[in-house]
């Protein structure tokens, strides 16, 4: 190999972006060619210097003022949303009165309501998931033993919660919790996957369950809903979609 070809690859090699197949030839050349070897060392030295000394320190107070900005933006948004919601309701009522059509009412009841409540439910589930991580209130019963978690739910919810530990498949059971969701107490099971957390909410399937879309993305979190065994399963996590799908499939197919 010519030095010219090697030089063209040195940066990619330094950045770990060179094809694995091309690396051995480069390493062999650099080991024997003094000039190319010196060039690589010089690039490494530069990289090291930039990485250790190139960062601008965060100015004092910037993080605090950032937080301040975001909190006031959130408040403003809430107020705007509150107004919009009221306006929306008035318009709905006026249209309903003016038209006086049963169809309108039926349409409203059948279509608008589920969408709104479905969204409310999605927001609530995301909120519970976030809270469970932030407030250190991940579990009420901390155990990876399904024989301990399953009985714990008895007497706390009026249905039988299937509990499996998927530790062998990379999703260890961390524990369980009771949350208030959709007007009732529901069981929440918590699983880990690498450094991520999964909350799996389980409650009896009802008509209302159809309101949740099968997959939803909300603020960087993903929700996947499935009905099975007469129950509604809703998994939420910041894992990517495939992994969360994989988890839920493993869980539902467990023991079958």
């Amino acid at each position: 190999m010519h030095c010219k070809d090697i030089r063209a690859q040195l940066n990619a090699y330094l950045d770990g972006e060179l094809d694995a197949g091309a690396a051995p030839a480069l390493e062999a050349h650099v080991a024997t060619c003094a000039l190319c070897g010196a060039e690589l060392r010089s690039l490494r030295q530069l990289q090291h210097s930039i990485r250790t000394e190139g960062h601008w320190p965060l100015p004092n107070g910037l993080e605090a003022s950032l937080r301040q900005t975001l909190h006031s933006a959130a408040e403003t948004e809430q107020m705007a949303q509150g107004k919009a919601a009221l306006l929306g309701d008035w318009r709905g009522i006026l249209v309903g009165l003016a038209a006086g059509l049963v169809l309108g009412v039926v349409f409203y009841l059948l279509l608008m309501q589920p969408v709104r409540e479905g969204n409310g439910l999605v927001d609530r589930v995301v909120a519970l998931h976030v809270q469970s991580q932030l407030a250190d209130h991940l579990v009420d019963v901390a155990s990876s033993d399904r024989h301990q978690v399953k009985p714990w739910f008895q007497g706390r919810v009026d249905y039988s919660v299937p509990v499996h530990n998927l530790a062998d498949q990379g999703f260890p059971l961390l524990g369980g919790r009771i949350d208030y969701l959709d007007g009732r107490n529901v069981a929440a099971l918590v699983f880990g996957h690498r450094r991520h957390r999964i909350n799996l909410f389980v409650w009896p399937a009802t008509e209302s369950a159809a309101r949740i879309p099968e997959t939803t993305n909300r603020r960087g979190y993903r929700l996947i809903a499935r009905a099975a065994q007469g129950l509604e399963f809703l998994a939420v996590s910041d894992l990517n979609g495939e992994e969360l799908e994989h988890f839920l499939r493993l869980y539902l197919e467990y023991g079958t």
């Binding site: 909190h71 959130a74 409310g120 927001d123 995301v126 976030v130 932030l134 603020r219 979190y221």
Partner: peptide, 10 residues
């Protein structure tokens, strides 16, 4: 509550 959750997530 949803807005608080959004801010926390953010």
């Amino acid at each position: 509550r949803a807005a608080d959750a959004a801010l926390s997530a953010f």
